[in-house]
């Protein structure tokens, strides 16, 4: 520091250098932020807002089309709809292991791919599956049909009560 007072010439040079450093740092920061923002935008761009293939909300028919105590497999929606008394529930048939479709039976569910077995509630009884099958929220659509929202996972044994 003392150098600068003694030698104004050098002080000027140092000042010049630090100004250049400052500009370089600012440029780097602006460049970095821009690059990061563009990366983020690209990622968001790659994330579709709607999906063409499988709608998350599906209507599965009027409640009275199910008989009490029954359950119906809807393979194209990969769910089973279960009716107990006047209560309705929907359970995923996507195996939590590696995404195969499980087959429903009276005693539960069985995965044909890697042998995972689930009970009626969808809890794992055996095989490599890491967690139980999802239960989805069921609601009543304005037109009187049952609607299953596959984006909303609910606790097991959550039923929707409908006056049929």
């Amino acid at each position: 520091m003392g150098d600068h007072e003694l030698n104004p010439e050098r002080a000027k040079k140092t000042e010049e250098r630090s100004r250049r450093n400052f500009i370089a740092i600012i440029t780097a920061v602006v460049f970095g932020v821009t690059a990061a923002a563009m990366g983020l935008f690209n990622l968001i761009f790659m994330r579709p807002r709607v999906t063409y293939g499988s709608p998350a909300k599906v209507r599965v028919g009027r409640p009275d089309s199910y008989s009490p105590g029954s359950q119906l497999e809807l393979p194209e929606n990969r769910i089973v709809v279960r009716r107990q008394g006047d209560k309705f529930a929907a359970i995923s048939t996507v195996c939590t292991h590696l995404g195969c479709t499980v087959n429903a039976s009276d005693i539960g569910f069985a995965c044909p791919c890697h042998g995972s077995v689930y009970d009626v509630r969808g809890d794992v009884m055996g095989g490599p599956a890491p967690k139980s099958l999802s239960w989805f929220r069921v609601s009543l659509a304005p037109n009187g049909e049952l609607e299953v929202d596959k984006n909303q996972v609910v606790d097991p044994d959550t039923y929707l009560e409908v006056k049929v």
Partner: peptide
């Protein structure tokens, strides 16, 4: 609608798939 039994990933991922069978 009809998964094959067993459903397998490409061969170079079968080591992974085998390990997933033990612990996801």
């Amino acid at each position: 609608l009809h998964p094959p039994n067993p459903a397998k990933a490409p061969w170079y991922f079968l080591g992974l798939q085998e390990m997933v069978g033990y612990d996801a």
